[in-house]
Design a protein around this nucleic acid. Structure first.
Lengths: 117, 117
DNA sequence: GCTTTCTATAGATATCTGTCAATACAGTTC
DNA sequence: GAACTGTATTGACAGATATCTATAGAAAGC
């Protein structure tokens, strides 16, 4: 752990940590949307299922079958995760495949990382 | 970045990443509570304000005055953050001081970190 | 084109959540 | 102990959200 300390002790990070400086309303609203997307057990499991899958892609049908919920409900959750920029989708034929957006997850990880603050 | 790769490629991490293996319902519910706590602009700003403060402690009165919200509302948000284990509080005289729980933030950061998965 | 399969959208509804006003509780000071 | 200050709790309510059923849209096969 070798944080580069500057005058104010934090400008060395291009991705500012949450605790580096008080964030403003707009920033908070944007970040909150992403955390809120992660703040549901079903959506967390969706992210987990997609991320754990070899190849990184999962068909909606496989996701739906992993839950005791209806297909529209899963579709709804996927939409929220996609709006948050956490996942991406691609249609191939009849099927739609979802995959993670690693950069988005990393960004949130960095934000929460105390060490880099 | 030097992940220790094992047979399954992930057991080297004591704190499993979200994408290492599909998480179960209970785990998801617990983690979702923490992410949900972070999924509100006011609470994100509270965490940010507390974390950015020199000394790591902030009095409720200082937090309240930073928002255009009533004192009970701020108290409500602080309670949610505390229930999620993200912050801690201590009463000293009339005042109550809040501080971050770095381990809790780090834990969530690790979970989201794709590299360590 | 018709049917079938897979996915998304629309509408309805019960529950959850963020906010406030009012009040209670805790500690200090007089 | 009475008054005052700082913080938490309660109760109420508008708005958001998770879920379902029903339906629409998209692609493939007949």
């Amino acid at each position: 752990m070798l944080p580069i300390v500057t005058a104010t002790g934090r400008e060395a990070c291009s991705q500012a940590a949450l605790i580096a400086d008080p964030i403003d309303d707009e920033t908070a609203a944007g970040l909150a949307q992403v955390f809120k997307a992660l703040g549901d057990p079903v959506r967390l499991r969706l992210v987990s299922l997609i991320g754990a899958r070899q190849g990184g892609e999962v068909c909606v049908c496989d996701l739906t079958s992993a839950f005791d919920l209806t297909q529209p409900t899963i579709s709804h959750h996927l939409k929220i995760l996609r709006a948050a920029g956490l996942i991406d989708s691609e249609r191939r034929g009849t099927w739609v495949y979802y995959r993670l957006v690693p950069a988005a997850l990393e960004r949130m990880a960095t934000l929460l990382s105390v060490a880099t603050g």
